[in-house]
Design a binder for these strands. Structure first.
Lengths: 221, 221
DNA sequence: ACCGAGCTGAAGAACAGCTGAAGACCGCCG
DNA sequence: CGGCGGTCTTCAGCTGTTCTTCAGCTCGGT
């Protein structure tokens, strides 16, 4: 399984080879040196897995980041620490960590643990959730604020695709290709359907499908 | 992808043809014979890729340079060595090398590896940081002091280009070419957009885009 | 103080996106 | 087979934003 991995580690000598190893294993990696703007990075990047160093410069340590992550993402957490205290382990698991590695470590060991976590995650649920919206592609059901939305076939496919890529800007071209299977560029076609979808979605809450002018659309709570 | 490549190699007989081959492939190349003033060169030149010979005259070898690089740049590293010891390979990767070539090598092989690394880098979403400003071109997100900046398409492109070349003076002509794709010289067009950008940037901190009178603009913390 | 470079508010041109409406299309049922 | 209801697509006008141009001003260096 190829995944998006976010590495938060201040020591370059550790982060760089780790990232290189993960990339070598086919993963997409984003490197960050500290917890600054962590929320923004997570929202924008939507990692499947976060590798968090416990000791970080700045106000927030790995535990704080793990806790923050729980609130806004279903991404897995692998904690990295230099300390081998049981206390730390407990704190880590309490903060929602899925696993734990202790420095110094062999990169292969980390790769193995990352692989294990991702395999475990592999059971991807068919439902996607964005704020108070739940889209179940298997059941072909979209629910917002407890109410079932009456969507046409195109509207549902469009919403499912958008929700499945929430937080990412999707261009009209991309949507035409992925949702319609067209290769001609007809922006208005997308606009019309987004408009219809918005009308139905926004009866029960605030805007979820946002316009990224000149770029496309993003779904965000 | 065209890139800036820094070649650190003491043997002229190897360095010269290598540089020529890289230039032939469209890259911009800077040649250096040893690790003296390495930091200054990197800061000034901001290479995308560094080709480092392991054995260098003077105090520092390629590993030391690779390590130094990790701390100050997100540039890729390709190590070049005469030794074919596994131990060296491991040391190289530990120092953050992205790949490895063994002397004697065919220039085409090096070109292929350089291409592979750059292609890989091209895919990897990269963020640029200048002081408290983070620009993530992939997520099309600019954050300053924890606040997301609302930028128009042109403003974002301009900021991304400026931040991506931080510390370098960029002429208005260069900006018009790179950001707008124009070849007519219209300094005011750039000034207007820089002005708008500054207004948004300076709401959350001191000036980052500085005027280099008669020359252009520089981004510096 | 002067001059050229640079800054910026304002205007309007150009553009992207939104939406109501009309017609085309399709499957379903009588 | 023909009509009906719903859906999809096309079209056209509208709106609000963004880009560009312009003009007058400020600033810095000599």
């Amino acid at each position: 399984m190829v995944a998006r991995v976010l590495v938060v580690e201040d020591e370059d000598a550790i982060r760089a080879p780790l990232a290189a190893a993960l990339r070598g294993a086919g993963h997409e990696v984003r490197e960050v040196a500290d917890g600054a703007d962590f929320e923004e990075v997570v929202d924008a990047y939507r990692p499947d897995l976060a590798l968090l160093d416990v000791q970080l410069p700045g106000g927030r340590d790995g535990f704080a980041l793990a806790t923050a992550l729980r609130g806004r993402s279903d991404c897995a957490v692998l904690m990295v620490t230099a300390r081998d205290a049981v206390d730390d382990r407990l704190r880590g698991f309490a903060a929602g960590a899925d696993d734990y590695v202790v420095k110094p470590f062999a990169t292969v060991e980390v790769l193995a643990r990352v692989g294990a976590i991702l395999r475990r995650l592999g059971r991807v649920p068919s439902t996607v959730q964005v704020g108070d919206l739940v889209v179940d592609e298997d059941a072909r059901l979209a629910v917002r604020a407890g109410r079932v939305l009456e969507l046409t076939a195109t509207e549902f496919k469009l919403l499912a695709y958008l929700a499945g890529h929430r937080g990412r800007i999707l261009s009209k071209t991309q949507l035409l290709t992925q949702v319609w299977g067209y290769d001609e560029y007809d922006p208005n076609l997308v606009e019309v359907h987004v408009s219809a979808l918005r009308r139905k979605l926004e009866q029960h809450g605030p805007r979820l499908i946002h316009t990224a002018r000149g770029l496309g659309y993003v779904v965000r709570p």
